[in-house]
Design a binder for these strands. Sequence first.
DNA 1: CATGATCGTAAGTCATCGCTTACCGTAGGA
DNA 2: TCCTACGGTAAGCGATGACTTACGATCATG
Lengths: 109, 109
Amino acid sequence: MTYETAIAALADPTRRCIVERLRGGPLPVSALADGLPVSRPAVSQHLRVLSGAGLLQVTPHGTRRYYGLAPGGVDELRAWLDAMWDDALAAFAAEARLEARRREKERPR
Amino acid sequence: MTYETAIAALADPTRRCIVERLRGGPLPVSALADGLPVSRPAVSQHLRVLSGAGLLQVTPHGTRRYYGLAPGGVDELRAWLDAMWDDALAAFAAEARLEARRREKERPR
DNA sequence: CATGATCGTAAGTCATCGCTTACCGTAGGA
DNA sequence: TCCTACGGTAAGCGATGACTTACGATCATG
């Protein structure tokens, strides 16, 4: 449920750039806007999306608000990826069995 | 580089539905289109995007093409997530140190 | 060889989304 | 108390993208 909004939030290049800029630690909005090719209101809108997805957390300090990566923010997303692609191995085995069955059906011709 | 197209491909709900339907093993296009709320050409377009992102692999068999999850298709995406959010712990430590420094600066007043 | 089934592609339409400018509320310093 | 910095919000615009219908190509089957 939440991993859907998380992956939607991370799909935007500008938002990924924000995430990468937050690797070093929390930053206020103005510091984030400097160096980004978009205006400051655009950054605010992106921060709203990222926060809404549970990827960022805010700590107001005076007039400036520090945005930082939320620990465990991508846990559900990782869990979904694992659920899909770990079963893919089993699917691979299934496909191998299907292939074997197809050969078996072809051989007697 | 590839994780960007992968996350963009997985951002669409219909494409995620396709991925989930492929957990049980490869399927031809018609079988995928049945049960999805979109037309068959739409499914073909989604499959093109997913394949282009390295998430799916195709095995033509006669007139029908079997689409299946590509093993290791999300490896780069997982690596990127780890690189971001594992360093987030270090960032958290950095923020803690920053907080400590702020208190230290406030205390002597 | 002809026919039907499977699937990819092209063109067009409509909604969603990201960006901008303009505006407003709020906290801190002179 | 003014005023300046910081940042969130609203409205409008342009572009990207997802979907549909129509068409064409290919392979198996009668």
